[in-house]
Design a protein around this nucleic acid. Structure first.
Lengths: 188, 188
DNA sequence: TTTACTGTACCAACTGGACGGTATAGCAAA
DNA sequence: TTTGCTATACCGTCCAGTTGGTACAGTAAA
């Protein structure tokens, strides 16, 4: 079939295909041939859209990061202007993300990729720096805000790698405790 | 010279060489040839001690994990029998570990390896499960104990990947806050 | 105390497959 | 007929693992 698509649609298709491979088989199966096959393109077709593998990986990172940040912004608006709103939204977005096992394993694969792909790592480092700035300026005591961000990150980390993650009740307790501590720091 | 070594000494040599490669160049440079070269052996000699790469990687994980756990046990003894002693020791051991940039980058590489090497990942998952059991039984409210473990893990995670890590003052604040909360839960 | 044998430690050369990337020819819509 | 895109064949490199050894240490019977 030679039905044409828009380039943007094809890229979306490629992102979906790549993500599926990362979830089902992991980073080491993310070869150009595999991605091409999974997205129904030829290798040449794939390389038309991304000049090389690094560019593809970078784009995948940007793609998933954008999804996370959009959700973050939305949750932040839901929280309104109260002190700590940003931190609460960050906690909710993080928990939401890892609650789906597929997404969790996708992120585990992405993490592995960072070791090899310096530019992807740089992107993520930069993101965390900006999130940390948000955390420090969200209306709470900066030390406490960072403390709670680290707790959320630890939760995320343990779920992502399945490192002794909490069961559902424990997770709920932790999350509600984070929220409670945000409130406490907010009124102080 | 054909002075023979004991196998255990050679293995130690190999662990040192492999760790150096992981620190300086990362997982993707950890090829059998590189490890052989760095440890002054031939590839065949290396493969005499480890039948294949998976076995080598597994052994590296066990090696570094043993170092961590030894330190953990020692710090635990220093804390005595007080409630929360184990959690405090865990916090101290974790912070100690990541304070050295070399060690931090070593662990970042090891983490990347887990994605590809399932048995290494299984080992780490198992370790975290047993640590979580210790956390839950260390004399604190189990929910709070887990909460604080996650905070420590989040700190460790952010230092390891350099994801918006705290500066020295912030880190000290976080650690002392963890310790203070252990005390609070202990007396309750 | 020589000889014959066994196990341990190590090595150099090679093989085969995977994979990133290139070259090039072709097709279809505008 | 140019632009956007696809398809296939191929190349070079890297790398895990194999093969077929050598060197030497210990042991024990003759």
């Amino acid at each position: 079939m030679n039905q044409k698509r828009k380039a943007a649609d094809t890229r979306e298709l490629i992102f979906q295909a790549a993500s599926k491979i990362l979830i089902d088989e992991g980073l080491s199966s993310l070869t150009l041939d595999q991605v091409a096959k999974e997205s129904g393109l030829s290798k040449g077709g794939l390389l038309y859209h991304f000049p090389n593998k690094v560019a593809l990986i970078d784009a995948i990172f940007e793609y998933h990061n954008a999804i996370f940040e959009e959700r973050l912004v939305q949750l932040c608006e839901d929280e309104g202007d109260a002190p700590g709103a940003w931190l609460k939204a960050y906690a909710r977005a993080s928990v939401e993300q890892i609650s789906d096992p597929g997404t969790a394993s996708l992120y585990a694969s992405l993490f592995a990729a960072e070791e090899k792909y310096a530019s992807a790592h740089a992107l993520m480092r930069q993101k965390y720096v900006s999130w940390q700035q948000q955390v420090e300026n969200c209306g709470l005591d900066p030390n406490w805000a960072m403390f709670l961000r680290l707790t959320v990150d630890g939760l995320w980390f343990s779920e992502m790698h399945q490192y002794g993650p909490p069961n559902e009740k424990q997770r709920e307790w932790v999350v509600s405790q984070v929220m409670a501590l945000v409130e406490m720091q907010a009124v102080k």
